[in-house]
């Protein structure tokens, strides 16, 4: 599997938001718990809509949740 060119801080943000579970986040975003787990592990690249929805749940701008890796063009 090719490594995605970005990382994310969803796990940490969930923890900071009263230890929100993957299932709770999935419910609020409209995806399954497994999809949240896949995004966290960098196994799945979410659509722009889902990425924005995740950022919206944490009340953060998109770039504070997902970060482009500097060593990748």
């Amino acid at each position: 599997m090719a490594q995605l060119p970005f990382t994310n801080d969803i796990r940490m943000l969930r923890f900071l938001m009263f230890e929100m579970t993957q299932g709770d986040l999935g419910d609020r975003v409209g995806v399954t718990r497994q999809t949240i787990a896949a995004i966290e592990q960098g196994k799945y690249s979410p659509s722009l809509e889902v990425a924005f929805r995740i950022a919206h749940v944490f009340n953060k701008p998109l770039e504070e949740v997902f970060r482009w890796q500097k060593d990748i063009d």
Partner: peptide, 11 residues
Amino acid sequence: KEANLKEDERE
């Protein structure tokens, strides 16, 4: 609950 969930974009 899981059985009633709609397919999401990944699925």
